[in-house]
Design a protein around this nucleic acid. Sequence first.
DNA 1: TCTGGGGTCCTAGGACCC
DNA 2: TCTGGGGTCCTAGGACCC
Length: 383
Amino acid sequence: MSRIIFHIDVNSAFLSWTAVKMLREGQPDIRLVPSVVSGDPNDRRSIITAASIPAKKLGIKTAQPVSMALRTYPQLVIVGGDWEWYKQCSRGFIEICTSYSPVLQQFSIDECFIDMTGRCTEENAVTVATRLKDQVREMLGFTVNVGIGSNKLLAKMASDFEKPDKVHTLWESEVEEKMWPLGVRDLLWVGKKTEQRLLAYGIKTIRDLASIDVGQLSRLVGRKYAQQLHENANGRDDSPVETERTEAKSVSAERTFSRDYTDPKDIDRALFNVACIVAHRIRRQGFRASTVSMFIKRTDFTVAQKQTSLDQPTDVTAVILNEVRRMLTEIWDGSSPIRQVGIGVSKLTHESAFQMSLFEDPKMEYYRDWDRQYDESKAGQKS
DNA sequence: TCTGGGGTCCTAGGACCC
DNA sequence: TCTGGGGTCCTAGGACCC
């Protein structure tokens, strides 16, 4: 049976949400002028998190350094983000979408799929989607695009057509007309590297990708990926709208320094801070981790990474930090400047803490106590 | 111009077991 | 003594998404 899927995407989410908040405070609508959301604009390393449509028209893009955008347009309006407010906006948005179909998959803070099969027909899908889009605008004050298709891929591709505040369809019968003329980079899962690789073989459009032999494509990009790309280029995708929220498989944190560090003390302090954050997060979620990984990024952006397996899963900051420090000595000679450090944990379980306690390091109780105090101080900050 | 932060998944090679 | 093939796990690295 043929499905009807909507993909709903908030237009320039963080920027729109900030605009709504500023409007409420009696300030002008930053959506109407070249504006961006970013980190501290005085930090040369800040990048743009979201850009208004007028800013995008000037060539200013998400993930671009703020300093670069300022050179493009010195009068650029720069605002900071507000994570709590964004979460509130996201909840309101998801709530409205859920009222159209409870079969909802949240794809990110500002995007979701809903399965509308049986809840509307191909004939009235656009009318229903328009109602949804208008309802979000009227109730919450920001605009969304709705993409409609017979599967998630087509719906997502459709929501990416003209913006903002638009509804588009991409039925299978429209793939040839609406999707095949697009460049390969426009296809979901085709990033910069894959585009370059494909272009080198003369594969320019999604149509080219759809008609190429899968075996040939496999040699270019690997078997699984080739199969997926080939299916998607032909408009096929049988993945369901997943309503279950899957548990995190890994937790990580990273810090980029305001200038590159060489002093081991600076590096160690950063690793300590990052380890605290990661360990705190897994404790809050009731996880223990069996794998600890870390990486350093050098001045030239090359990355060295290391990972290790633990005998016992842990959520203790000191244990994680200890492994990280050991791994650092294996990948860093202490002389080359470092731009960024990161720590990740994976192989997460909800295993209890008690086993093997007989053989536990006697200091462990002290470490745990330290963590408890850290967690309490964090909890205190929030409320 | 000079590039953040948080995730997921895949591949390839080596170790180890049967 | 030297040879095989398959399966699983681990680690490093690289691609993609928002």
